[in-house]
Each structure stands twice: as structure tokens, then as C-alpha cells.
Design a protein around this nucleic acid. Structure first.
Length: 237
DNA sequence: GGTCAACTGCTGGACGGTGG
DNA sequence: CCACCGTCCAGCAGTTGACC
């Protein structure tokens, strides 16, 4: 099922993997920009930290019922480093997708249903500024099982490479990078997620698929700071 | 030398036009 | 309907350079 050469490299890298810590932009300054542009937005400033977040903090926020769906969503998007102007666009229509966040956090829909709903809202033009890379971040942190994995350029390209097939449709960019196409659907997303679960079984020291996802997500940055897997991925594609 | 701000170029997303 | 391509831009990180 998996390409043996690439799998061997991933195994090697996974053995020395260090969990990603605090990243993204300051949720507080991100929120302030949105608030400035959407003054009527109903948020609680107390729920936004001036320091960057890590994954654990976002899991906790998702299950904390005293945090509104808006405050939770904005924390996730700032963690992901969403462009502020894009944040304004998608939050301008928050009422159109707020019920979906509610269903996710209560666990009443699964990952593929959530993907279907998000792509439906997007097709109807009510989700400007937020493509699959970001709405899968909301699925990932929102659902209590955290098993709807983040499908962005890095994880999608990784899965495609390891499977030796273009499972996830990509849009190529001018500079040689690529992003996840809007023309993926919930069936592809489900396969993407189950591939990460299958991959976990192949990694000797990993039992939690969330960690597998972190490994293929790897780290950004330049030069030595760029994660080993990300550098390998760029060499191969 | 040291420091700090301005500059420069890279990263990683989304958008929108075109054309089959 | 969708693949392809160019364009945009905030946030970084590294570099430069003016000034003490």
C-alpha cells in the first residue's frame, strides 16, 4: 500500500521526532485586527492570549463549554497563522458556519460529514477566505475525538507521496509550492484520514494517529529550522 | 564593537481569470 | 465543471547599516 522507500525515510525521521510546541501568531493581536474590521463581532477578549498556542491548549479550549464557538474558532485560526484579511472575510459570515462548529464540538457529526458541510457552505459563497487547509484545522480541534486530520499542503503532499498516487487534488502555485484544491470531497478526505491511521500502524514507536499527523505536518521555517520530513518532501516532489 | 530599526526576500495560504 | 496559472499579501527571519 505504501511506497517502501518513502515509508522507510518517514520511519527514520519519526524516531527522532520532537512534538511541535508553541507556534502561530498571537491570538490577541490577531483577534484585535478582526475586531477592528468587524466591530459588531461578539467575542470575549479574556479568551485570547498574547502568547502563541500549542495543540494541547486548543484541545482544552474545544472541550471547554464556557468558551463560545466564535472564540474557539478564532483561536484555532490564529494558531494556523491565517491571513488577517482572510479572517475578516470568513468571520463576516460566521453565523452561516457557527452551527457546524457547535455540531463538531458536541461530537454529533463525524469528520466526513463535517467536511461535506464545510465544502457545501464554501460552494454557496459563504466561506470566503477559508479553504480546506483551514476548515480541516477546525474539524481537527473541534471534534472531541480529534480524528479529522488537518489536510493542508504539507500533510496532503505527504500522503500523496507515501501512497504514490494523487489522492488529494492539489493546486500548483507559481513558486513551485501547492495548496489543497477546493475540488476534493468528503470521500477523499475520509481516505486521507484513514491513510494517516494506517500509517500509524507502520511506525514502530507511534500509536496515536494525531502524532503521525504532526510528523508529516513537520515544521516550517527556513534552512535548518525547516523540519526534516518537510525538506525530504520538497526534494521528492 | 553593540544595538536596534529598516530593509529584503521567503513562506504558505487564498483569489480570480482563462480556457477546455 | 474544473484544471491551470498568475497575483496578492501578512508574517517571519535573516541582513544591512546608521548611530552611539
Amino acid at each position: 500500500m505504501f511506497n517502501e522507500v518513502h515509508l522507510r525515510e518517514l520511519k527514520k525521521i519519526s524516531e527522532e521526532f520532537i512534538s511541535q510546541d508553541f507556534v502561530g501568531s498571537s491570538p490577541l493581536s490577531w483577534m484585535m485586527y478582526i475586531k477592528k474590521n468587524l466591530p459588531n463581532i461578539d467575542l470575549d477578549k479574556g479568551n485570547f492570549s498574547s502568547d502563541t498556542l500549542n495543540r494541547k491548549r486548543l484541545y482544552d479550549m474545544s472541550s471547554n463549554s464556557s468558551l463560545s464557538n466564535l472564540d474557539f474558532s478564532m483561536n484555532v485560526l490564529s494558531w494556523g497563522g491565517m491571513r488577517r484579511t482572510h479572517g475578516v472575510s470568513c468571520l463576516n459570515n460566521f453565523s452561516d458556519w457557527e452551527p457546524l462548529i457547535e455540531k463538531l464540538r458536541s461530537g454529533s457529526i463525524d469528520r466526513s460529514e463535517a467536511y461535506l458541510d464545510f465544502s457545501f457552505i464554501r460552494k454557496s459563497g459563504k466561506l470566503k477566505g477559508m479553504g480546506p487547509a483551514f476548515f480541516t484545522k477546525l474539524i481537527f480541534f473541534g471534534h472531541p475525538d480529534h480524528n479529522g486530520f488537518i489536510m493542508d499542503q504539507w500533510t496532503a503532499r505527504s500522503v500523496n507521496l507515501l501512497l504514490d498516487t494523487q489522492l488529494v487534488k492539489m493546486v500548483s502555485q507559481k513558486n513551485g509550492s501547492s495548496s489543497v484544491s477546493d475540488f476534493n470531497n468528503e470521500i477523499i478526505y475520509e481516505k486521507f484520514c484513514s491513510t494517516i491511521e494506517d500509517l500509524t500502524l507502520k511506525l514502530n514507536n507511534i500509536t496515536d494517529p494525531k502524532i503521525t499527523e504532526e510528523i508529516i505536518f513537520s515544521n516550517g521555517g527556513r534552512g535548518e529550522k525547516k523540519g526534516k520530513w518537510r525538506r525530504y518532501l520538497l526534494q521528492q516532489t
